[in-house]
Design a protein around this nucleic acid. Structure first.
Lengths: 217, 217
DNA sequence: ATAAAAATTTAGACTAGTCTAAAAAAATAT
DNA sequence: ATATTTTTTTAGACTAGTCTAAATTTTTAT
């Protein structure tokens, strides 16, 4: 049984593993966890002796099959709770992340099974992220950052990369939420800002924002 | 902001304060928390400097107005979550205590407000215990142990004192759950066991069980 | 190929919470 | 009223997780 803290490290390592197939570096984990490299070294030793990751000094960390399975269960819980908060308790899309960060650590397989059932076995959460099933199987919808599309692209928003509350609030305000239809009208060469159409409205978004909007391809 | 552990101590002290108006003793808290007296001494010093309790060496502990208010919020959360688990997720009455022990520590006033609303502002939880409102006001239903009633008593079960899972399972099996009609038919002098009628069935229960069934008076 | 810079690990210290064993205070019994 | 027992507190140690500062290893630059 993992502690609250161990679970958070494992989740961070899983996410870092997904973006790039190379070993995850100590400093990357430190940044993701808002902690210091020295603390990370201690923790990865611990997770390594428990066989959730493999660790080679000065080289980095790789998540094990067992670690991935554990991480997927935490992510499953997080996304089911987010779905509950938005669909049942009528929270806004952008208010649920921090609460789900807490709820994801509740220990009770039966609870998650019943919650899943209560929600009608949803396949994705309110941010458009896929929810792993009880065996940890995850159906990845194929998506790419809007920023990497060409002018003329028309499709729908799959998810938002960054969970930053300010970003989510902003996207909510302009109507750019998962599931929405979106079109890329033009690209400004100078600062790589994009002119888009969403919610029947034309507007301009920055490169930073466009890199965080993942759209169906 | 209180830690997980501080919250659990405070809740235990609150409950011990309610049963008896005297100061709460170190050993009582140690037993309630399944810990050692030395650990309790450390913690009550801490809660005392934070003004949740007043503490006099070798004498005992009294909960403060502030401590009571904090404890009531935790209890409110616990009972709302229990209600959710039983009414929405269809858990059995006797399965929810341990899960609610975890959920009660989730920090988000907005979450509790919305949960309360989702449940239709319930006044009592599935065990029959009253749910404090958002100001900590608690409407005590007047009740007494079935054991203290006289043969001939007829009324309904308000709540069950002990949260022990085996007791709850047993009561569930015989149909003696909060809200149910119950009648006291006879009292056996020798071992103080009771003959009762519940769920249209006659049966005998021990003194220990009868002391834990609280009925409306 | 070596010097400088960056990343990582180690060493040692700190807080929160816990424990055992010993000391001190309070309650009880004679 | 004093001795014994019980309760409570203190002292010191341990684990989990964190930090800073110093040491070490790897990478980068010349």
């Amino acid at each position: 049984m993992l502690s609250f803290t161990e679970e958070n490290y494992l989740k961070a390592i899983y996410h870092l593993s997904e973006s790039g197939s190379k070993a995850v570096l100590t400093n990357e984990i430190a940044e993701a966890m808002s902690t210091k490299a020295a603390s990370v070294t201690d923790m990865i030793k611990k997770l390594s002796t428990k066989n959730f990751i493999s660790y080679e000094k000065y080289y980095g960390v790789k998540i094990s099959r067992q670690g991935k399975s554990e991480a997927l269960m935490i992510i499953r819980k997080h996304r089911l709770w987010e779905t509950f908060l938005v669909e049942k308790l009528l929270f806004n899309w952008d208010e649920v992340h921090d609460i789900a960060e807490q709820l994801e650590h509740i220990q009770s397989p039966l609870l998650i099974q019943k919650l899943d059932e209560f929600l009608g076995f949803p396949k994705s959460d309110p941010h458009g992220e896929p929810i792993p099933d009880k065996n940890g199987k995850i159906s990845m919808p194929s998506s790419m950052p809007l920023h990497d599309q060409l002018p003329g692209y028309a499709g729908s928003i799959v998810s938002v990369k960054d969970s930053d509350s300010n970003l989510l609030k902003y996207l909510n305000r302009i109507g750019a939420t998962p599931g929405k239809k979106i079109r890329l009208l033009a690209k400004e060469e100078y600062d790589e800002s994009l002119e888009i159409e969403v919610d029947e409205k034309r507007l301009t978004i920055s490169k930073a924002v466009a890199q965080n909007i993942l759209v169906a391809v």
